[in-house]
Design a protein around this nucleic acid. Structure first.
Lengths: 339, 339
DNA sequence: TTGAAAGCGATACCAT
DNA sequence: ATGGTATCGCTTTCAA
């Protein structure tokens, strides 16, 4: 109920000019005498005039708005990523519609519907797990996937994320250098980690250190519960079955937290009996006791690259590369250093 | 570049009716013969028609959109709260513009400008720390503050949050019942906690147990650093100055984390030498070792009440109460139970 | 049951 | 340097 909004017509009246002139002044187009310019500006200011975006959109055909589709609320990494994307877009003059997909395709579809109606200029999927084709994304609408689980092969789409295999490889190397001989890989299911690629990478990396892999130490859950809980169960089960490891590479900090819990419950000391490295370098890894080494995934860089790619597409430039990989570094803490 | 969008006019042509009829069918208004209805629907479907929200907004004058202003990315509690609000709004048929204020008034002001242009139907401030009056919120625009730091006195504004004094009181009671005699209160500055009210509440509550308060144990930082770090320093300083406590009520989980760190560094055992209770009941309190007791603030209820209040205002109903208080409960864990 | 036509608020082309 | 006016896509009132 914002009173009766003042329109461009009102301003024109007050200034004794036409709406065309007001529009030009406000958008800095055409050539207008300084005097008129000042007068119009002054009046618009005084009357608290704000242009209606709906009207502008209707006549210009561009909303300067992008839709962000992000998954559930539970993972701080995604929330943070989403907020970063949003911030970069805002700085570029865009405003965002944010939709929580709850990681549910049906819901994402409905979200998409709303966004289509609103004619967003582009779309950002955060950690998307969908096939963009049968999700009904309008043809030709620029899309970027940030930290995607699976990479869509669709025109006008670019993915920005990490090279998980490389990260896992480096994490394994770290542990091996610290003396681990029996290194476990721990993850809950995501397209990226359940692939054979990971396992193969592990094999090759272990070989560098003269170690042989043990399939019993490749722990991958179905992700049917909270990842921390599931991870704890996987590690617990593994140990209870009699398999021992002296190092664990965890694909996520919450997973690492679960691993630590299971180890602790069985009297194993983290950082001494078993070295642990996580991923995301979230607050969790920092505040855990002992602090957990973790791979920093350069989330802000992801967000920034993603936004840049999106806006370039919005400008009509076809993307050169449909897959951007951002760097990472391993932050070492007590869990791999021994107190 | 979503091709050339199909408009209501195209559908009308194809169906051999007027745009008025199509509009009615699509909105379920007026009375239309079943035959026409089916035909139009079928064609709209086939052509993948989506109504332009800009046009609809322009002619109807309602955007069915609300703006959410939320602070920085760093606190998962706020992110989660924001996402909850967004979800409830979405379920009610609204879409949200989300803006990250970075807790900066200037930035919030610019955000508001964008939102005003877009003629949002309402506004949600998450954990706002601003004076709505000099922030330039349009008169008469419905606003709800969720978990606000200060309560605005402005028409068409309702605040939804917890009763911090009551929460602190109950936390103190818990510690007192568990045998604490020297209870500290720890917080980083926020309007809500620095007030004398808190201190007075502490005094009265301690009195219930025959305890006398010690001003040296009321620790309030300026919130100039990350709250966990600041909290650790406050507690550390306090201990190093020779003041001892056997219980700490922390106004936030990250603050509790900081307190625990300081205690641990000084050889004090949490849950035995010093009992600790936090607030937010976030993942942090659950995964800490030992796990930290924490006040669950019913965030989802906050979000839900807030959205409900907002939508009722959007419908034009003046709010009965401008301040809604939601409940809480204390979840006890090792930090107050002793291993 | 259906349709013609008048807005909604801003932009931009074409005159003046 | 300005202004008239068609246009964007949809809703809605009033007649038919």
């Amino acid at each position: 109920m914002p009173g009766k909004a003042v329109s461009i017509y009102d301003i024109a009246q007050l200034a004794g000019v036409s709406t065309a002139t007001v529009s030009k002044v406000l958008n800095g187009k055409g050539s207008i005498s300084q005097a008129t310019k000042d007068r119009v500006l002054e009046i618009a200011q005084r009357e608290g005039y704000v242009a209606s975006y709906a009207a502008r959109t209707l006549s210009r055909g561009d909303t300067h708005t992008v839709g962000i589709l992000a998954p559930d609320v539970s993972n701080p990494f995604f929330s943070a990523l989403e907020r970063r994307v949003e911030t970069h877009l805002y700085d570029a003059g865009y405003v965002c519609y944010v939709c929580d997909t709850g990681n549910d395709a049906g819901r994402a579809r409905r979200n998409l519907q709303s966004l289509a109606q609103r004619q967003v200029s582009g779309l950002v999927f955060v950690n998307g797990r969908y096939d963009l084709d049968d999700l009904g994304v309008a043809d030709g609408l620029p899309v970027v996937e940030v930290d995607p689980v699976m990479h869509a092969r669709r025109p006008w789409t670019v993915s920005v994320g990490n090279d998980f295999s490389a990260m896992a490889r480096d994490a394994v190397r770290l542990l091996a250098r610290r003396g681990c001989r029996r290194i476990a890989l721990l993850s809950v299911f995501t397209g990226a980690t359940s692939s054979d690629g990971e396992w193969m990478g592990l094999r090759a990396t272990l070989a560098e250190f003269g170690l042989t892999p043990d399939r019993n130490l490749v722990l991958v859950g179905p992700h049917r519960k909270e990842s921390r809980v599931e991870a704890a169960e996987l590690v617990g089960q593994c140990l209870d079955d009699g398999y021992r490891m002296d190092g664990i590479v965890c694909l996520g900090d919450r997973i690492a937290l679960g691993a630590c819990q299971a180890l602790r419950e069985r009297g194993l000391e983290i950082g001494r009996d078993v070295l642990v490295v996580g991923m995301d370098n979230s607050l969790f890894s920092q505040v855990a006791v002992p602090a957990i080494s973790s791979v920093d995934r350069h989330e802000d860089e992801m967000a920034e690259c993603g936004v840049e790619a999106l806006l370039s597409m919005v400008r009509g430039e076809e993307p050169e590369e449909d897959r951007i990989t951002v760097g990472y570094d391993i932050v070492e803490r007590e869990s791999t250093l021994g107190a």
